[in-house]
Design a protein around this nucleic acid. Structure first.
Lengths: 213, 213
DNA sequence: GAGGCCACCTATGTATACACTGATGACGGT
DNA sequence: ACCGTCATCAGTGTATACATAGGTGGCCTC
């Protein structure tokens, strides 16, 4: 693996997990020494982060980690509702029913995964990720898929702000199952509506449990 | 201005104007010599182009200019309809009526600009660009605005494929005026519908006059 | 004592040398 | 004659040295 890839992955993780707080300046020499690489691959990593919006160039004085305000979260979910609603609608039109029926079944059993002794809920998030991937594949639109991928980076970052407690995860699993069911049924409007409902509840939960840092 | 910025702008223009055809390999040494800079800033420019989707890394063998097929154009307009429809809707809710009334008036007089002896129709495209900017500002959503900006790069590239003849431009100006009117009237659903109509006609025109290269 | 100017210095922007990987071609063996 | 292997090489990936700009701190002047 290239050094620039490792630097990018490391910095991206540090920002998403809030180990690097908003406003932190990422000086090139400092970070390249910390990661054990030279400035050249680090600069490429910083370029990618800036293109994604996780950092911004502070006018010649290095790049700084961007902040996410409550307003940003509202904007983020506004775009998310637009994109994922359309995606769910298209998936219902173009997707393979069997795939989403299978996912629906697994999502209905997700509470068992959430109860399992896994603090990070890896299995649960992996399952939700598989639903996302299935939708990405079903829509057959690389531009839309790309737009959603670039959004998910920010969403994961926001998710780390909220307390993903047992109750919310169980409810979210049911909402995901409803989306999968609508797609499997080939009902675009229902799929879009189920997505809207899920995202609104998700947003409400984030804003309710948001802990100012 | 930085050398990497100049290289980015030059390459971006060359790709958008189809001077660099799809499939062209952009070797680092070759391009850096052509543009009179060293490899380091050129690499940054190539990274940006790849992030935008104008080029792709061909597995360690340099970056190549991406192609745009007819399927791509369909996907592009599918996403465009989603984003710009939402944007027009939000602009109708949040925008300043006076701004869009003014733009509507100018757009209704656009045929005069199109008739003017300006082969590139600079004034006309500048006016349409002002409408885009006004919508961007009105939606008050930086993430949505960013998503639309990244789309417009590809759209300009597609536009160069179509023959933007006098008749089509005149009709497009009227469609744009209708969008501005709906936004000024504060009617979100009408603004979205007008956008949908405009984009479908635009897509039909592109596909009808598309000249395989 | 306060404000402005100058110098130094730190950090980014650029160039270039070196390393390494992947491909291509030729040559030899079967 | 064809296939496999090895060597060469072209081109990217990385490191580092140099240029330059912007900022900060100190000093001088009013």
């Amino acid at each position: 693996m290239r050094a620039s890839d490792r630097a990018y992955a490391a910095l991206r993780d540090d920002i998403i997990e809030w180990r690097l707080r908003p406003g932190t300046v990422l000086a090139e020499v400092e970070q390249s020494e910390r990661l054990g690489i030279s400035r050249t691959p680090l600069r490429e990593a910083l370029s990618r982060l800036t293109a994604e919006g996780l950092t911004t160039t502070a006018g010649g004085r290095g790049v700084v980690v961007t902040d996410i305000s409550l307003d940003d979260i509202d904007e983020l979910f506004e775009l998310r509702e637009t994109l994922e609603g359309k995606a769910a609608s298209l998936a219902a039109e173009r997707g393979d029913s069997a795939v989403f029926l299978q996912l629906q079944g697994e999502l209905l059993q997700a509470p068992a995964l959430i109860n399992a002794s896994d603090p990070a809920r890896h299995q649960y998030y992996e399952l939700v990720g598989r639903l996302d991937s299935a939708i990405d594949a079903a829509i057959a639109n690389s531009y839309l898929a790309q737009a959603m991928r670039s959004l998910r980076v920010h969403l994961v970052r926001v998710r780390r702000l909220a307390a993903d407690d047992h109750a919310r995860l169980t409810a979210a699993a049911a909402e995901h199952a409803a989306i999968a069911e609508a797609i499997a049924a080939g009902n675009p409007r229902l799929a879009q509506a189920a997505t809207t409902v899920h995202l609104h509840r998700s947003l409400s939960h984030v804003k309710a449990t948001h802990t100012p840092h």
